[in-house]
Amino acid sequence: MWIDTHCHLDAAEFDADREAVVARARAAGVSQIVIPAVDARNLGRVRELAHEHDLTYALGIHPLCVMGAKPGDLRCVAEALEQHGGDGRLVAVGEIGLDHFVAGIDADTQQHFYVEQLKLAKRAGLPVLLLVRRSADLLLAGLRRVGFPHGGIAHAFNGSEQQAQAFIALGFKLGFGGTLTFERSLQIRRIAAGVPDTALVMETDAPDIPPRWLYKTAVQRETSPGQARNESSELPRIAESLAGMRGWTLAQTAAITSANARVALPRLPRQP
């Protein structure tokens, strides 16, 4: 059975058919989905969805949301972590991190929210879901400065081989998804093929990061606005790319990546 370690099931793109999205995921063999929060306003929503659908969740403020955050939003995260610390469905602090790809987001503000949320995760005894986007070295520096001991997942990993090894050395797994399905994603595919078996987890980041068969080019988007929605049911097909790179069967890929996910996120429920 598969574990989607990163899916924004609360996103508006799923409002019309969320029940069906979860049903399709289960029919495809995805037994567990982690739903990360992105700002203080959806902390309650991700928890609600996790309980409603027998899934799991993470609490945090996304680096792309920090510019719109209010002064008390970090306190909201802290209070939610304290209030729900005994909730077995709460598996991590996230989605947090640094995004140095998108322009217009103050680097110091991102850094402040990142470090403060690392401290909250350390206090709560929870791993983190880290967005890594042209920011690996600064993320690693923050982990070392805080002395973060709980590891987690480097989500949508796109750094270098050296940076991959540095995250692994700090107890992190590397999250891979739809980008693996593009033959031109040479570095990401090389890292996914070469890191230790124990370092890999699967994710969709749905509704984002569509795999090759759902992707639309700029010309296609111009003539037919919108991009096909990614969802958790695509995970096994995405994983075929990883299986091919590593010489694994699909069953082996599911078993290995799911076991790794449970190491990274120890609160994930065990299969009966």
Rank of each mutant, 00 (worst) to 15 (best):
F14N: 09
R24D: 13
R24P: 00
E19A: 14
P63T: 10
V38W: 00
A50W: 12
A40H: 08
A40G: 13
I35Y: 03
R18I: 02
H51A: 09
A23L: 05
I61Q: 03
R45K: 15
A40I: 07
F14K: 06
D17I: 00
G29I: 10
A20T: 06
G60L: 01
F14V: 02
A40D: 10
A23Q: 13
A20Q: 13
Q32D: 07
Y57V: 03
A12D: 14
E13D: 13
A12G: 07
V21F: 00
E19P: 02
A58S: 15
D17K: 01
A23V: 01
D10A: 15
G29D: 06
A12K: 14
T56F: 06
E13G: 14
G60Q: 10
A28F: 08
A58K: 09
I33C: 05
I61E: 06
A37E: 04
E48I: 03
D54R: 15
A58D: 08
V22N: 05
A37S: 15
Y57P: 08
A23R: 12
A28V: 04
A12F: 02
H62S: 04
D17A: 03
A16L: 12
D10T: 10
V22K: 02
D10I: 01
Y57H: 09
T56S: 15
D39C: 13
Q32S: 12
R26Y: 10
E48V: 01
R47I: 07
L9I: 10
